[in-house]
Amino acid sequence: MYTARVKFKRGNEIRFISHLDMQRMVQRILRRAHIPMKYSEGFNPHPKLAFAMAMSVGMLSDCEYFDVELENHVDPDEMISRINKSSPEGFTAVNALVTNQKMQSLTSLIEESEYTINAKLLNSEDSKKLEDAVKTILGEESIKYRKRNKKGRYNEKEIRPLIKDLDLVIENSKIKLGMRLSTGSKENLRPDVVIGILDPEKILFDWEFGFLTKRTFLGKSNLRERI
């Protein structure tokens, strides 16, 4: 049995589709590309396809991953070129790794993501305020985030350790804000939460998910299988 690990980009043309739609889209791309997918058994067989993480509707990404099980070996370069020929605009396969060895699952490997926001200051005099807000966060030892749980009660969560780095560049009221945050099944912090802490009253800058580009990083234990 072979598994292909595929690295891909999600561009503007397809940023509005949901995670479920994304899974369906990739299945159809793979079928059009004649990739020999392995199917589950049973009354309703489906391809064995696994994504690293669900993406927010609207967000772009320079680096995402999925794994797919194959019936037989396929040359990775050949696979990438076939996928890209069968893909809609906005979906680009970058790299693939095909192996018959057991790989650690994507969900267990994923640890961090990097986000870049390109936005504009609402008021050009406010650059200092935003810079201070970034410094404040990085200077804090503890940040508690209050979140409503499914039962409607508030939970408090320590999120400072999940913020690995923030990096702000302001040029002529244009903001480029880089964030490195924990991602994955163990610890996860969404970029909009950090933005909410930086600018709780939404007076400093205007943004939406389309201004956000994500890069997913697989953890260090993945060195051997890095693609």
Binding site: E13, I14, F16, I17, S18, D21, R28, R32, V57, G58, S86, S87, P88, E89, G90, E208, F209, G210
Partner: peptide, 18 residues
């Protein structure tokens, strides 16, 4: 593009399908 993040199932309005 400004309106799409505000609506349910924005991919109804974006076209560009295969």
């Amino acid at each position: 593009e400004k309106l799409l993040p505000l609506v349910e199932t924005p991919a109804r309005y974006t076209g560009n399908e295969v």
